[in-house]
Design a protein around this nucleic acid. Structure first.
Lengths: 249, 249
DNA sequence: GCGGGGTTGCGAACAGTGTACGCACATCGT
DNA sequence: ACGATGTGCGTACACTGTTCGCAACCCCGC
């Protein structure tokens, strides 16, 4: 029988138009921006930035490779949405936080830091996306600006402060996130990894005594508390400067 | 005459073994790590990060697509080399800078900033590469550490300071670089671009009065001086905190 | 009822990617 | 003179993002 040349795709032997399984009924639009973005975040959390491809995302959603393009214009746009989704996880300073703006700012900074460390793949994306008009990112800066103005800064000062604060947090957290992702990619523990590259470090620091002393001092990698302390120090310095500026008028 | 089909792959008709042009004589090894990295930097400067592909790089070097793999293990490794090459453009504080560590640190920070802004594509790469053992990156941190210890900080403090300072500089400069690259990609001037997206901004800031006031206040984008001032403020704050810590012991 | 827009899903196809493999050749140490 | 070594490169493979056109479904006006 049937060399039926109707073959319309993978399997050249097609039984008949009548026996061919109909496409599964569409109960309701299964795809939407929200579920796409949510699944992308899940994929990124589980497998990292390199694993995000439209095809993989599609199969995870039981969808075809190109089915997302009705809801999202391009992969870059998807990434912008993902970034704003993560902004949405960050805590916004409430309106009454101006009473103690200093702890409110520190709290917000720490919140941003831990959000990024929960999704370390976001750090390079933040560098590529830059300033965005996403609603969540705007909510965050709006909250910050409002709090600072309430606390006595004028518009320009508050603008500077927000920029400086965010820059510090992003810079500090980006390097922590890079360390985390490299560790995750190697699949080893901190101790294993440092033990493994130790000879290379020793050889590379041959001509750099201070660096060598630094590495030997903190052998086995920085512990989490050390990192938090380090983050807190710099944050305090920035907030000190901020306070001085506020007192000065 | 000279339809000399130099290629034997594209054109299946091969005249003869004898008439086939011999491969051009190799005068001397034309490829090396250095020329590859240098050309990669040039390509990145001219066309941005998205344009860097092994094939394009190869053709720019009059080489085949895969000829670089004798000198460079992978594209990721090439990027690490490129990053360290850029580190090499940054000014390292000299040994006598400890006399006035504050201006030395500020000078170094400004140097890092302007180097990054000269190569804005590097910002996301710094986020992906993280800490590296490249010689130039080590020279820089070694110089910083040495200067700070000379100035009176102990090892641990100097470590903190370097990390905090770099974090601030990277964070601040990354957002500036992102703005620059987006501008370059759109091919428009600051004014054109802001004018063009203004309605979108106006609509997006409907519910965010502080943000809207901020945008309207600095309409037409931040000028260069404003950016430098902004960078300098935060830097001063960080250095103030640093100074206080030094005075306290 | 019953068309017909408009939207959503998707298979195929296209141009372009990083890179593994193996062959041709040049160079060099013996 | 001859193998060992290392460099250049054509080919090939598995993927990538994205376009296009077609099929199926929804809803809305008749």
């Amino acid at each position: 029988m049937p060399e039926n040349p109707v073959s319309q795709s993978v399997n050249p032997v097609i039984q008949s138009v009548w026996t061919r399984p109909r496409r599964p009924k569409r109960e309701q639009p299964t795809l939407s921006r929200d579920v796409i973005v949510a699944e992308a975040v899940k994929l990124l959390d589980e497998e990292g930035a390199a694993a995000l491809s439209m095809r993989r995302l599609g199969t995870r959603l039981n969808a075809g490779a190109t089915s997302m393009y009705s809801h999202v214009a391009s992969k870059d746009e998807l990434i912008e949405l993902v970034v704003d989704h993560i902004y949405g996880e960050m805590e916004v300073p409430g309106p009454d936080a101006a009473r103690d703006w200093r702890t409110a700012a520190a709290r917000c900074a720490n919140g941003i830091r831990s959000t990024i460390l929960r999704h370390p793949w976001i750090a390079p994306m933040l560098g590529e996306v830059g300033v965005s008009l996403g609603p969540n990112s705007m909510r965050l800066t709006e909250g910050m600006l409002a709090m600072l103005e309430e606390a006595g800064f004028d518009l320009e000062q508050a603008d500077h402060v927000v920029r400086i604060l965010f820059a510090y947090v992003m810079g500090m957290t980006t390097s922590e996130a890079a360390w985390l992702t490299m560790l995750a990619r190697s699949g080893q523990s901190q101790e294993d990894w440092t033990r493994k590259v130790w000879p290379a470090v020793e050889q590379a620091t041959r001509d750099y005594p201070h660096l060598r002393r630094r590495y030997t001092a903190q052998e086995g990698g920085r512990s989490n508390e050390v990192l938090v302390d380090n983050f807190g120090y710099g944050l305090d310095w920035v907030l000190d400067g901020l306070q001085a500026r506020l007192d000065r008028g």
